[in-house]
Amino acid sequence: MLDCDSQREQLETAIRGLKCLLSLPPEYTGDVLGDVQMPSVPGCERRFSRIYCPGPLVPAGFRYQPSIAAVAREPEWYRVYMVNLSRGGLQILHHEQVFPGEHFEIGLLDGSRRLCRAAWCHYLNHCCYRVGAAFVKESSEASAAD
C-alpha cells in the first residue's frame, strides 16, 4: 500500500500531466503565487476564512459539469491552480471564462473531488481568469457562496 506522500506525488504527477492552457500574468512568474493576500473582488461573498496558497502554485484537476445549456463545454480534464481554499469554496486560476452558476468538478491533491458552482469570474489576461466558486453540497442542489 502506498503511503500518503507517494499517493500525493502520484496525484500531483497526474494532475500536472493534464492539459493546461493557462498563461500566467507576470506576478506569477516562476510558477509562484506571489500576492498572498489578493484583494477582495466584487461578487465574492464567502463567509469563512480562507487558506491562501502562497509559494509554488498548487495544481488541481478541473472538469466542467453540464449546467448551462447555451454554453457548450468539452467534458475533459484541465489543470488549474488554486489561489485559496475555505470551508465553503475556493478560488482558482483557469484559462477561460467560467460563468456564474456553471458547475465544475475539482480534483484536489489529497485525492478528493468536489463539485463546485462558479460565483464570479475576473479577467487577468486572455488566457487567465480568476474564478471564485462555492462547493455544492451533495444533498442539495446548491449551497450559498460561503
Binding site: C121, Y123, H126, Y129
Partner: peptide
C-alpha cells in the same frame, strides 16, 4: 464589469 473582459473576448 462584471468580468473586466476586453473587446475581442
Amino acid at each position: 464589469y462584471p468580468v473586466g473582459i476586453p473587446a475581442e473576448e
